[in-house]
Design a protein around this nucleic acid. Structure first.
Length: 623
DNA sequence: GCCGTTTTCGGCCCGACTGTTTTCAGTCG
């Protein structure tokens, strides 16, 4: 059972209990456990295999009752508690909770008093006017429910960060132009730079809220206004994306922004911290127990009042950041300005949209000092992947552009080499060795069984010519989950081989994610943040990749793209020494090392290849 | 149901907005 399946089970329990009318804190406990399980960095099944039900209790939010339920699920594939619950509360009622404006109380009422158990039945009842006589309901609420069901069919769950952030930035620019506005910021999961967001949260500091609200709801892209009050309004855009705006007095903006940025769990920790200092923390201010308020215009003041250093929004997930802050052990997170190299990009030689020169100039304009041109390898036909011969032609082109651009930027010739369905790489070792840098990626057969797809990746990780594993899981946000990799095995192999794992910055990939980036960094695995640019404008994706790294507590020194050029070249040149090679290592996750005489012979051939590769880089270094 | 430098019991999730109401319940973030 995957972490996601476990998480979904407990989320469903929370919803059913809510409709049943269970005490709110029990519901919150199940919901919190579901969230933790969904984002847990290790395979929960593995944790359970090692430590049994007791071991599961290391997972935050998992105590006695939930650990026993996980144990039962993993042992039997079923959960008696949930089966019994389903006989009390129809399972399909969970769908009704997704309708905006419909909560657990209404769902229970529709079910018990009108026998409504599905979305279709709800729609039919509303259309027939059968809901208006219920307590707290009238014609208008029926219309709202129908509108809500409509909106539900338009929206497809969470929105990728890459889609929401540009919209939010436009709105911020608009709001900052309104008279009287002192500050405007994003908040919520968008400000924490989560890979997907539910909606756009915006906060404005102004003494006069009215003109701000007016400007907000009257934007041309707004499809409808969902609510408009004195200090809060919300709207829905044509594409179904929603935004809400709060306006606060400037002298309280810090507390308001901190509160609205969350996460909920982080805020709970801060409130605990406030209580321990005899303070109470709310959206509006910190309050002493004599009732006196401490107003904070900035978030820095909020954290300072709690005796804490400023905690960057990306860390505010209650993953140990408050404890680390107390000990003075917050990491100095990597910043966009630290990144000097992009080691994964495409040109018109395969499926890119610009020439090598065009891409190089765009990279240089963004301040990069190194660009690796890594077009696709031959087997990825749809992308126009390069044959070894085309690769040699491309080398001449890269050399030419390098001469034209002088030493303003260093170009590396690389390739994004396909890890084929049988686990073999798409170029032989001689070709791989001729390249300055090799990114190996999975694009096909991602739905293979866990053992097989994991073994494929391990095989690539152990090939000494491979420098970076590109977008390791192959996930596409929001619609495609990554391959079912055994990440414990993958990370262990990466740590052993010294290969770098990529944080692909494309907003639809963001792969590795924050959780695995953090684990990889902790294990000493080098990380690479690459844009996978197919167009000059794509270099701007770097922001998203850096955001993932920051959410993963990653520092600049853990990212090879931020290393000085000489160090990076030294690392590339040193890769691949003293390890078995592709043709030697059997294709299995637990491949034993070979030391037979025949393999030594092959080893000698490989060694030459490695030396060729080193020489190439050295030659280029001297340019 | 979970958690703990204040606790093994008692806190955790509070305020704005909406639509229904005649003073408030439900939803949402």
């Amino acid at each position: 059972m995957t972490n996601k399946e476990l998480a979904d089970t407990f989320a469903a329990i929370a919803s059913l209990l809510e409709i049943k009318g269970e005490v709110i804190y029990k519901i919150l406990a199940y919901r919190r456990a579901a969230e933790t399980l969904a984002e847990y960095g290790r395979d929960v099944t593995e944790v359970w295999r090692e430590g049994g039900p007791k071991g599961l209790r290391e997972i935050p939010g998992v105590g006695e009752a939930i650990s026993e339920k996980i144990d039962e699920l993993l042992r039997t594939g079923k959960l008696g508690f949930l089966e019994r619950l389903k006989t009390e509360v129809p399972y399909s009622l969970i769908d009704l909770l997704k309708v905006p404006g419909v909560g657990p109380k209404k769902v229970a009422m529709f079910w018990k008093q009108r026998d409504v158990t599905t979305l279709d039945e709800l729609k039919a009842a509303a259309l027939a006017g059968k809901l208006r006589d219920l307590p707290g309901m009238a014609e208008k609420s029926e219309a709202k429910i129908l509108e809500g069901i409509e909106s539900l069919s338009r929206r497809s769950g969470r929105t990728p960060l890459g889609q929401a952030l540009p919209v939010a930035r436009e709105m911020l620019a608009l709001l900052r132009g309104v008279k009287g506005v002192v500050a405007a910021e994003t908040a919520g999961s968008l400000r924490r730079m989560k890979s997907t967001v539910g909606d756009i949260d915006l906060l404005v500091a102004s003494a006069d809220a009215e003109p701000v609200m007016r400007a907000f709801v009257s934007q041309p892209t707004v499809a409808r206004v969902l609510g408009q009050g004195a200090v809060k309004s919300s709207v829905e855009f044509n594409n179904g994306l929603r935004a809400q705006l709060w306006v606060h007095p400037p002298e309280r903006f810090g507390t308001a922004l901190q509160y609205a940025t969350g996460s909920k769990e982080h805020n709970v920790r801060l409130r605990e911290r406030a209580l321990s200092k005899n303070l109470s923390l709310s959206e509006h201010a910190l309050t002493k127990n004599n009732g006196k308020e401490i107003l904070c215009a900035t978030e820095e003041e909020v954290y300072a009042a709690l005796g804490l250093p400023y905690i960057p929004p990306e860390l505010r997930e209650d993953r140990g950041e408050v404890q680390a802050a107390l000990k003075g052990e917050l990491p100095k997170l990597i910043e966009v300005a630290d990144v000097r190299a992009d080691l994964h990009s495409h040109s018109t030689w395969s499926d890119g949209r610009a020439s090598i020169r065009g891409m190089a100039e765009a990279a240089r304009a963004r301040g990069l000092r190194v660009l690796a041109v890594t077009d696709h390898s031959q087997s990825l036909g749809v992308t126009g992947g390069l044959t070894p011969e085309r690769l040699r032609e491309q080398r001449r082109e890269i050399d030419k552009v390098q001469r034209q651009l002088g030493d303003s930027i260093l170009l590396l010739q690389g390739a994004e080499v396909e890890i084929k369905a049988d686990g073999q790489l798409d170029y032989d070792d001689v070709v791989l060795a001729s390249l300055d840098i090799v990114v190996a990626s999975l694009h096909t057969s991602l739905r293979q069984p866990r053992d097989k797809v994991t073994a494929r990746l391990i095989h690539a990780i152990r090939n000494p010519h491979v420098d970076i594993i590109g977008h390791p899981t192959g996930q596409l946000i929001p619609e495609r989950e990554g391959a079912d990799l055994d990440m414990d095995v993958v990370l262990a192999a990466a740590a052993e081989s010294g290969v770098a794992l990529e944080i692909n910055a494309h907003p639809m990939r963001l792969d590795l994610d924050d959780v695995y980036s953090r684990r990889a960094a902790q294990m000493g695995i080098p990380l690479a943040i690459n844009t996978d640019a197919h167009h000059p404008a794509d270099f701007a994706f770097l922001d998203y990749g850096v955001a993932v790294a920051r959410r993963g507590w990653v520092t600049a020194s853990q990212v090879i793209n931020s290393w000085p050029t000489d160090r990076l070249r030294g690392w590339l040149a040193g890769r691949g020494q003293g390890r078995p090679t592709a043709t030697e290592a059997p294709m299995a996750a637990e491949a034993p090392r070979r030391t037979s005489a025949t393999s030594k012979k092959k080893s000698a051939a490989k060694k030459n290849a490695v030396i060729r590769k080193k020489t190439t880089v050295k030659q280029r270094k001297s340019r």
